[in-house]
């Protein structure tokens, strides 16, 4: 089943790239892993759907490489490329909101999927927080796209992030709370999303069934 989603995601590339990625998944030493990592990052920055799923592909390649040759060329290149993009995130955001949102989605997805001895990668904790903090700034809260991205990431990795660094999560939620309570001009969708994430964290990263009904039943009607 996992393979079928991977295959599905890989369909969006041209034929040569598809072959390259499929080989990378099965026989990583046979391909240029630096190139593979760049292809994946480039695609993630363009394609929001892909950026949500790329973590799994990366995970599979990392595992395959470690098993095959005890190597980590792919992971190293992937992370360093991510770091490079991280450094220019303000320019990216100014240039293209979509690319910026894709970047955040991707780095969070990587944080979620790639682990070191089953623990989150410490090197990514602060960068991920930095991205989320940026999304929680007043100017970003005005963009539904960014709010949507922010709450989605928090739903996925909020609990893990809080475990590795609680104080920064508090800091982030002060911003969200203040934005929700004090900021003029938020769209109603943005307010609703913020309220939901505030309640979600307050409930121990879970929604009670009443809350769930409150936020989701209306949509169904």
């Amino acid at each position: 089943m996992e393979n079928s989603t991977e295959d599905y995601r890989i369909q969006s590339f041209d034929l040569d790239t598809q072959v390259l990625l499929k080989t990378a998944l099965k026989d990583p030493s046979a391909v240029n892993l630096e190139k593979v990592s760049n292809i994946i990052v480039d695609q993630s920055l363009k394609d929001q759907v892909f950026s949500k799923e790329a973590g799994r592909i990366c995970y599979t390649i990392v595992q395959a490489e470690a098993k095959q040759s005890n190597g980590n060329v792919f992971r190293r290149n992937l992370l360093n490329r991510l770091q490079q993009e991280f450094k220019s995130r303000e320019e990216t955001r100014a240039r293209s909101l979509q690319e910026w949102v894709c970047y955040v989605t991707f780095i969070c997805n990587i944080f979620d999927y790639l682990k070191v001895n089953n623990m989150p990668m410490v090197a990514l904790v602060h960068p991920v927080y930095d991205c989320l903090m940026r999304l929680a700034q007043p100017d970003a809260l005005m963009n539904e796209e960014e709010v949507d991205c922010l709450v989605l990431q928090l739903h996925r990795i909020g609990e893990q992030l809080e475990k590795v660094n609680g104080p920064r999560m508090d800091e982030l939620f002060f911003l969200l709370r203040d934005g929700f309570l004090l900021q003029e001009g938020l769209t109603s969708m943005a307010r609703l999303l913020l309220l939901e994430i505030l309640e979600f964290r307050a409930g121990g990263w879970m929604l009670s069934s009443t809350a769930h009904k409150y936020y989701y039943s209306e949509i169904a009607d």
Binding site: N80, V116, N117, M121, P127
Partner: peptide, 22 residues
């Protein structure tokens, strides 16, 4: 050192440190 290094090396150091502790 870890903070100065690139993310790839940081993660490798981290991995090694955990390995050594284990």
């Amino acid at each position: 050192c870890g903070r100065q290094a690139d993310w790839g090396s940081q993660v490798e150091d981290d991995e090694m440190r955990r390995g050594v502790h284990r």
